[in-house]
């Protein structure tokens, strides 16, 4: 049933849409200036409802946990502002997309429900970005889920890139990819635990059960 999408703006501000309705409304929002303006005011009213809830006292431990986590991210994460070679990699793939989403009025969902695997790992508390030299890096979630963001040229004919998770001297195959101009965003198919290293080699098409060449991209050990 086609319906007037404007009529969903309040339900959206209240987070009362299901996933499908929300996606559809966000598409509409991107095109509809009027809804974005209306949403700004309705969000203020929704936030007032937040203040209307009875207050509760969080534990001091929560405050500490948040601050510790924030500080650890600042140290481990390659800061986006520092001019590293792979800054444009991230800027291009996630920051711009997220900034565009925020400007289009999509504040909260773009972090969690994003289709971008890199952003979805990085949005989890406890996630880290581990540098892999000037080619890029690997984002590792607290659950070991990992995503590579690498600026590598397309693999030569009859060759493929193969990702590896290396732990205690043992390399486990973790996915094939062919590379492309710009940045390749590749999910690592095996969990990356503490103490592991993520590597990429060039292998014959179809991949290899064990690396046949020296890794040309290697991460630091994941803490």
């Amino acid at each position: 049933m086609p319906e007037d999408p404007h009529s969903l703006v309040a339900s959206y501000a209240l987070d009362a849409l299901d996933e499908r309705e929300e996606k559809e409304f966000e598409q509409h929002l991107a095109l509809c200036e009027r809804c974005r303006e209306e949403l700004a005011g309705l969000r203020e009213a929704a936030a007032a409802l937040a203040v209307g809830a009875p207050p509760a006292k969080p534990t001091l431990e929560l405050r500490q946990r948040i601050l510790d986590q924030a500080r650890s991210e600042r140290q481990n994460v390659v800061p986006l502002r520092r001019p590293r070679r792979w800054t444009p990699v991230l800027a291009a793939t996630t920051a711009i997309a997220a900034a565009a989403a925020i400007v289009l009025g999509i504040w909260a969902t773009s972090l969690d429900n994003s289709n971008d695997p890199l952003e979805s790992v990085l949005s989890k508390p406890g996630s880290k970005l581990v540098s892999m030299g000037h080619y890029g890096g690997v984002a590792v979630g607290p659950d070991g889920q990992a995503v590579l963001a690498l600026a590598v040229p397309p693999a030569p004919a009859s060759k493929t890139y193969e990702a590896w998770v290396i732990r205690a001297g043992k390399a486990t195959p973790a996915g094939l990819f062919s590379g492309r101009p710009g940045t390749s965003i590749v999910k690592v198919s095996k969990p990356v635990g503490a103490g592991s290293v993520v590597a990429v080699t060039v292998e014959p098409s179809g991949g290899s059960p064990q690396p046949t060449s020296k890794p040309f991209v290697l991460s630091g050990a994941v803490s």
């Binding site: 937040a50 009875p54 929560l62």
Partner: peptide, 10 residues
């Protein structure tokens, strides 16, 4: 934090 936690708890 207090408002946030009150809302989340509610």
């Amino acid at each position: 934090g207090g408002v946030a936690y009150g809302l989340a708890l509610r």
